[in-house]
Design a binder for these strands. Structure first.
Length: 270
DNA sequence: CGCTGACCCTGACGGC
DNA sequence: TGCCGTCAGGGTCAGC
């Protein structure tokens, strides 16, 4: 679920309910996430006003005057607004209950997500080594080209590395490489500047378009469905191994790169 | 330092 | 029907 566009969609969806609202309490039913939820987290955030909700990569930051709540949705996590009277279901690990009566409910079957605290001014190690936001001006073809010189990792692994650029998950990595006509296994250091320009452009385009359609995704989120149907129709390669290429009809190949399923067209991608 | 693969966890799905 | 292996949109970490 949580690719960058869905994290952004989550942010846009919950922010109106949080902004300027006071936290009544944090209810932690399961503290064993990617890292243990700090014992003192409830005490730290209770009775604090959420000044804003920000996003860095796939991390969400709920800002208060005394620090920020740092949330990651991991692989299977979601955060949705529910009425506090709604009984929690299986894997509904944490509630952020607001004085308004609204409640942000964290659901995460695989527990790869995290809830951590960030003191004001503190540079959290999880955030300090992150690359630029893909939609920022700091991210472009020239940046990718310069950073990739001498690197032998497959270009797909390169753009999925959060130290290079944040927010490009497995689906988008597959898709943007197809759109840019680059073979996913090509060494990052052997991609030309011109092709990195194309690639950076594709990344911005695909992520922007996905965020723009986030409204539909949020409704699915709230409805508990989670799998946005609108998105599958736009996929050129992801999940289509063995099917025919939408450009040249060749049979799409599927391999594993860094334990991630990788689909590409031998003809269109070099 | 760069790169690869193991690992964290639950659930869904296909083959037998 | 059950059992087993594989896979899943995240990321960290140890070891070479």
């Amino acid at each position: 679920m949580p690719e960058l566009p869905e994290v952004e969609t989550t942010r846009l969806g919950v922010a109106p309910y949080c902004q300027g609202q006071v936290v009544r309490e944090l209810v932690v039913r399961e503290s064993r996430l990617r890292w243990p939820v700090p014992q003192q987290l409830s005490a730290l955030i209770a009775n604090r006003t959420i000044q804003g909700v920000e996003r860095r990569g796939k991390y969400l930051l709920f800002r208060t005057a005394v620090g920020s709540l740092l949330v990651h949705l991991g692989m299977s996590g979601s955060l949705r607004v529910v009425d506090a009277t709604e009984p929690p279901g299986r894997h509904d690990h944490i509630d952020i209950r607001l004085r308004s009566g609204a409640c942000l409910r964290f659901h995460d079957p695989r527990r790869f997500g995290c809830f951590l605290w960030l003191a004001p001014g503190e540079q959290h190690p999880l955030l300090s080594n992150l690359g630029p936001e893909p939609l920022s001006d700091a991210f472009d073809g020239d940046y990718l080209y310069q950073l990739s010189r001498g690197r032998s990792v497959p270009v797909k692994s390169f753009i999925m590395d959060g130290k290079v650029v944040v927010g490009v998950g497995n689906i988008y990595a597959n898709e943007v490489l197809f759109l840019a006509g680059i073979h996913p296994r090509r060494a990052a250091g052997r991609v030309s500047q011109a092709r990195y320009n194309t690639l950076a452009h594709s990344i911005k385009q695909v992520l922007t378009s996905a965020i723009e359609q986030g409204g539909t995704t949020l409704r699915d989120f709230v409805g508990g469905d989670g799998k946005p149907g609108y998105f599958a129709q736009q996929l050129y390669v992801y999940g289509r191994g063995g099917d025919s290429c939408k450009h040249c009809q060749a049979r799409l190949r599927e391999i594993r790169l860094g334990q991630r399923s990788t689909v590409f067209c031998v003809t269109c991608q070099r």
